[in-house]
Simulated scan of single mutants.
Amino acid sequence: MPAVTLVVRGAALALTVAALGYTLWHGVDGPGHALAFGVLIAIGELARWGALPGEREPAPLGAAGALAYALLGRSGGQPTGQGALQVVAVLAAAQLVASVPHVARGSGPGPDEVARRVLSVAFAAVCFQPLSNSGRSESWFGEGPYYAAFLLLLLGLTALCDAVLGALLLHARTPVPYGPLLRDELRALIGIGSAVCATGAVMALGVAAAGLWALPVLCVPLLLTQVSFRRYITVRTTYRQTITSLARSTEIAGYTPHGHARRVAALCTAVGRELGLSGPELTVLEYAALMHDIGQLSLVDPVPEGATATLSAAEQRRIALLGGAVVRQTGV
């Protein structure tokens, strides 16, 4: 196991043990709020049940709930007293409870994902809770727009910390350079990442003004976003399966060697990552690589090994145009 992975997992484990021990020894401050946010995080983690391949954040509600608890300084106008260690303890307990059905089913988040969540939420709590509990955040920023801007700034720093951790852990598992991985993580913040951060901030502000009754109402938009995103992922998966099957038609018909399209797609994707292409651009590149030989189906006799470079320029262009016409029919 790479040293970076060991360090990140070890830090998250040590922090979790310390947080649970401290909370058990000193007791829970505001047990009602701890229970409410713990249940919210657990429900969000259980929503991983229907996660699909390609989901960057399979538990957005759990992430938003954890961030909201880390940035909670008041509830219904009254100050709360939970510290950073209690925030981590509630997050860890909720994840442990939610992991039981996942483990029984043989699925669930991996250790890297859990460690990343614990460290990111701990970062937000360490930055916010000492200022809130000492009253300095209220005296410095008040309760108006400056306070909201302060929360957004903390969320931005937390998202940056999470992106750096995610890229480090992925770089430790794959040969992909760190730079393109970090760019992918930062670009992902524009999508589901921004929705999670915004929902976390709105939850914290809503509970501060209206109390715990605001939580169920504020969860609905993110749940709807998650459902819509999973429908989108399902459609995209269907497209990918269709294109992969269509690309194999040249192999089945004997026009290209077995596995040729898949190997070209893997090579193109690796080169694209080296060039710093984003996720959508890599998807387009993969689709193009998978279907680059589809025009050979118009040939009466297969070219040996599918090497169309041996044909005349006019014939190569004709094959390419026919392949493009087929690709356009897929609608992707």
Rank of each mutant, 00 (worst) to 15 (best):
Q316N: 12
A288P: 10
S298I: 07
Y287D: 05
T310H: 10
V327N: 02
V300P: 05
D293P: 01
A314K: 07
S298F: 06
R317N: 12
D301V: 13
Q316G: 14
A288W: 03
H292F: 05
V303K: 04
A289M: 04
G306T: 02
G295S: 09
R318F: 13
L297D: 11
E315R: 04
I319L: 14
V300N: 13
L299G: 00
A325I: 11
L321H: 07
V284H: 14
L285T: 05
Q316M: 13
V303W: 01
D301C: 08
T308Q: 04
L322N: 14
P302K: 04
Q296K: 05
L297P: 05
A325W: 12
V327M: 05
A309W: 06
A314T: 11
I319F: 03
S312E: 14
T308Y: 02
V303Y: 00
V326C: 09
A325V: 12
S298C: 11
L290V: 00
P302T: 05
A307C: 14
V284G: 13
D293H: 08
R317M: 08
L322W: 14
E286Y: 02
L285F: 01
A320K: 07
V326S: 08
A313N: 07
A289P: 03
T308K: 03
A313W: 15
G324E: 10
V326E: 10
Q296E: 03
V284R: 15
L285V: 09
V300W: 06
L297C: 00
L321Q: 08
